[in-house]
């Protein structure tokens, strides 16, 4: 039995599947509790249903992207561990990086099935968990204090700025990535060489243009429902542009 066969065996699926199932149950519990609490405090159920629909459509494409991460890592780590890591706590950009670094620490030259041993696999799995668990640790100790403090300050005179600050923070996040794509195209292969990857910029422009169309449509009363699908639709347009550009 090769190491990859062992990594893809039933017991490995059972260990990882149990944890994934546990997380799914947690999500269902939080979802039902929040929905019921929303109803109890008199929230409009239409709003909550719209949130479910838009969040589901919103998450579909990025989830397929994450699935590709599972496929990419399955060649060296088997399928169950990447499936677990990317279903729970993990992040697409993080996992490959940490797995590679962990492989080097165990004496492997690169992350590959040919060099993998049972011990290096277990070490990689442990290091991947230890490196990314800190957000959860902080939540256990500080979430209550922090959110209570925020809701108290939210009731103070500066409350009017809270929403603007959150929107601004999000704008900062988006601007960082867009700036990074510009930087990538202009200077990734040397200052002002303009021969980096231009695809992300094309994708941004196309998906922004599609979003403009969706917003225009959703402003018509009969087409208000379009709003729930605007992000997913815009992403499909942007990703289709990337595929078409790749064929040129």
């Amino acid at each position: 039995m090769t190491i990859l066969n062992q990594l893809n065996s039933g017991p490995m699926y059972l260990i990882c599947g149990t944890i994934v199932a546990f997380v799914a149950v947690i999500c269902v519990i939080f979802l039902i509790r929040a929905y019921k609490a929303g109803k109890a405090i008199g929230m409009d159920t239409t709003k909550m249903k719209r949130t479910i629909i838009s969040s589901a459509t919103f998450s579909l494409l990025p989830s397929v992207g994450i699935l590709l991460g599972v496929i990419a890592l399955s060649g060296s780590l088997g399928t169950p561990l990447p499936w677990l890591r990317l279903s729970v706590i993990g992040a697409l950009h993080y996992e490959t990086q940490i797995a590679q670094a962990a492989a080097e620490q165990t004496g492997m030259t690169t992350l590959s099935a040919s060099e993998m041993t049972a011990s290096s696999f277990a070490t990689i799995a442990l290091l991947m968990s230890i490196c990314i668990m800190w957000g959860m640790v902080l939540s256990v100790f500080l979430n209550k204090k922090y959110t209570n403090k925020l809701s108290k300050s939210g009731n103070s005179s500066s409350a009017g700025f809270g929403d603007t600050a959150m929107t601004a923070m999000f704008i900062g996040l988006v601007s960082t990535y867009i700036g990074r794509y510009f930087g990538g195209f202009i200077s990734e292969n040397g200052l002002f060489t303009f021969n980096g990857d231009v695809t992300p910029i094309i994708v941004i422009v196309v998906s922004a243009a599609a979003m403009a169309i969706f917003i225009r449509l959703s402003q018509k009363k009969s087409l208000a429902w379009v709003d729930s699908f605007s992000i997913a639709g815009s992403m499909i347009a942007g990703m289709a542009a990337a595929a078409i550009f790749g064929l040129l």
Binding site: I204, S207, M211, G238
Partner: peptide
């Protein structure tokens, strides 16, 4: 297409 999921998301959100 799948390499550009994040730019597609942030392009729409940016607008």
């Amino acid at each position: 297409a799948f390499d550009n999921v994040v730019p597609a998301l942030f392009g729409a959100m940016a607008y």
